[in-house]
Amino acid sequence: MNRRENLKLLFTGSLASGIFMTGCGPEAPKETLHAPTIGEGTKWGRTPEELAENAALQEDVFFTEDEMKKLNYLVDVIIPKDETSGSASEAGVPDFIEFIVKDMPYYKTPMRGGLMWLDTEAQDRYGKAYMEASEDERIKIIDDIAYPDQAKPEMARGVKFFNTLRNLTSTGFFTSPEGFKDLDYKGNTPNVWKGIPDEVMAEHGFKLEEKYLPIYMDPDTRHTLAQWDEEGNLIG
């Protein structure tokens, strides 16, 4: 049904509707048409509320410029460029993290506090802010918080922060076009499922059960209309 028909139908629905009840007002009930207003289509099925919420989140700014600089550096430490794909910052991960902490506000304080913790730790160790420390000095701090099973107990806050940052960076990267390239992801496109490739079956030593071979979907007849006999056997 097209939009025009849709509108027509809803208009018809409005004529068919009955009496408007005032509920609690003293005046007598009067007749009103129920004619819902139909908005234009929304992008990828968003409701008007969702569009407004997303727009408000996009407009809001959480991280400061300094924090974004730190984030840009850190996400590339976690996911650097290599021979397979680009780095996290090239994949837009800092902007993704900026959005996600606004969308999931429970991230806000741990992320801000974690970035601040790096500065206080660098101050204690080297007498300067984290981004002013040398590359070696910065990595030394990261090495102390990146391995939860080995980290010293006094590093716990840093470990927790880095776990969160590793999660968000990894997920932000691998759900980006660059990440899909990295994973060599092949799906999300119309196709025909023909089963596991033969060489993969052989590699794992699997065979399909004989009894199902005659009934599995046949790619060659998958567009012919289904027909059954009276016992429910597929005959076409």
Binding site: E40, G41, W44, G45, N54, Q58, I100, T175, N188, P190
Partner: peptide, 17 residues
């Protein structure tokens, strides 16, 4: 305008969360 099918995660600002 109602289609969410065949969209990659980056078409959602929250990546499908």
């Amino acid at each position: 305008e109602d289609r969410t099918q065949l969209r990659p995660p980056w078409e959602s600002p929250r990546r499908g969360a």
